[in-house]
Design a protein around this nucleic acid. Structure first.
Lengths: 334, 334
DNA sequence: ACCGTTCATGGAAACGATTCCACCATAGTT
DNA sequence: AACTATGGTGGAATCGTTTCCATGAACGGT
């Protein structure tokens, strides 16, 4: 049933065909020194036989696998999809394969996937870390070359992250400028950076920093919806919410619609991460755009070059004003 | 700067620690026969040393790499992201790593990526094929175990595809039931299956099958927008359009808005592929939902089990009625 | 003319697993 | 008691590559 499955040709056969030793073939093919004549013969033989060096053999000898691992919480989330796209784009220009794993923001699954990667002798890894940084100690000790993307959980690991502080501050200032004082942050569990930035921003503008103004969801759509609905329902006094990601934003719009609170008349909404549908939404969503693809690309560069490694690179965000924010109305909702 | 980079421990060390030969260790760990006492010793030593067999060594010997390759046109497209998610979910339950490549629907890039995969000795591949089936001949001859997803371009390769024929027919019938007669199909280049299904559906309902009623775009957002705008502008007589994918649908909504044609008053729109934002759009979009994740999952099952391989599995689609389709108005637009 | 340096070259030893095969001990049979 | 199954066990070959090292030739300088 299966085809003839022709055996793959090896360096030995190339050597034989070219009338030289295997060492010479290897040297020619990896740019070592050789006489012009020999080089010619080897190249010709290799081309004629359509020789492809086996990455397996090479990697076993070299004690490291080429290629890079990538761990994201959810490939279905547009942000991580774009981040992944950036990684793939960079890796492709180096001809390096990328092995992708989905952690679901679960440290246990993450550890399991790291194990699989280590078994493959992968020594380069880009990760959007799920938990705190502690669990990365063994992986780092194992000599793994890690770069964090989107979140920084350890100071000793190079990271590429969006400028959360500036992004949050911009959002809060924008809303405050429209007269809002009770501003809520709808975030994901573990977004400690942004939450800190949020409370700092509130403080710097002398706005009330109620602890209950930040509500956190797990990264599933259901959890996001529940959190959004809860916030909208329990706190009629908040007149503006910042959603910490596109699925949170989606949930907020959905919940608002369900609970019959109007955007932007009843509450203003500003969402982290610009996605194509933000413009199609009704109303079109004002967003803090994040350079997801760039984050991935830069992270890949870092992990591939891994020359002197800067501790962290921070990429700018941008406020895109559409129509989901309005001036505060004098009376609170309901 | 770098940590101590502890060397990874090998089967030899485990053998030594357990006081047995390497062959025995290998046998115990892969379920071969051994005395209870020996098994005990080996397992204990392996656990104590935290031994992880090197996939490199194993694969080199076995002449095949575990793991599976996945080639999609665009990971940024929600449909392919969900498909990828399905593949990853299935692969994870087998503990198999997945190497992802983005083809951009470009056969050349696709061929290049296949080359990389073959270099890795990957022998299992799931692909959303870009071009026609011809270019796959060499890969198949090389013994590659291929499963096609979303598109079927060769009868001799197992494929997992949505039920295009039924989906298109449902859409056309639904629109015809609303009184529409001039229905256009806005598709991607190379969607021959669906386009054939579309013209067949028109014919079966005795609707005019103008050749210009199907317009094709390349898979970029720009191209999709141009095609949508062109269609809407040049053919004021069409009162309904079917968009062949979520980026095409997005483009159609955008173009309609730009050209000031109202949905659904001026033209009805039905989109292939249900995405979260379809409900948030204004108006909420009526769609033909496709089981993207299932497609990926089933494809992964096929490529992993690869027992007797059915030539093709077709997964059902489902019409989800929202608010982007209305009855035909008596007069054509403009 | 001799010696030292340089350079191309090929043989062989790794890398870490699997697996063939030979070996030995024990148990069972005549 | 001798001979044969049987089954556990370890040595060694193998997979395809890179790289160390030895070899030999060519060449230039004293």
């Amino acid at each position: 049933m299966n085809g003839p499955t022709q055996r793959r040709i090896t360096i030995k056969e190339v050597a034989e065909a070219a009338g030289v030793g295997v060492a010479t073939v290897s040297r020619v093919l990896s740019g070592g020194s050789a006489s012009a004549e020999t080089r010619e013969k080897v190249l010709a033989a290799a081309a004629r036989l359509d020789y492809r060096p086996s990455a397996l053999g090479r990697n076993l000898r070299r004690q490291r696998t080429g290629g890079i691992g990538l761990l994201v919480p959810d490939i279905t989330d547009s942000f991580y999809a774009r981040l992944t796209d950036g990684v793939l784009a960079c890796a492709r220009s180096y001809g390096e394969p990328v092995t992708v794993g989905v952690t679901g923001d679960d440290p246990e699954r993450e550890a399991e996937l790291i194990g699989t990667l280590i078994e493959q002798s992968m020594d380069r890894l880009i990760a959007v870390p799920s938990g705190d940084g502690d669990m990365w100690a063994p992986a780092l000790r194992a000599g793994l070359n890690v770069v964090f993307a989107d979140r920084r959980v350890r100071p000793d690991v190079p990271s590429v992250v969006p400028d959360d502080r500036a992004g949050v501050l911009t959002a809060v200032e924008y809303l405050a400028g429209l007269g809002h004082r009770k501003i809520a942050y709808l975030g994901r569990h573990g977004q400690s950076q942004r939450i800190a930035a949020f409370t700092a921003a509130l403080a710097s503008l002398k706005l009330p920093a109620d602890r209950e103004l930040v509500v956190q969801a797990r990264s599933s759509r259901d959890s996001a919806y529940a959190a959004a609905a809860g916030l909208l329902q329990n706190r009629p006094d908040v007149t503006a919410v910042i959603a910490g990601g596109n699925v949170l934003g989606e949930a907020a719009v959905l919940a608002a619609r369900e609970l019959d609170v109007r955007i932007p008349r009843d509450v203003s909404l500003i969402m982290f991460d610009d996605v194509p549908w933000a413009e199609l939404c009704s109303p079109p969503l004002t967003v803090i755009a994040q350079p997801a693809q760039d984050i991935g690309y830069r992270a890949a560069e870092l992990v591939l070059r891994h020359g002197r490694r800067p501790p962290a690179v921070t990429l700018p965000t941008q406020l895109v004003v559409r129509a989901s924010c309005g001036p505060r109305v004098a009376t609170s909702r309901r």
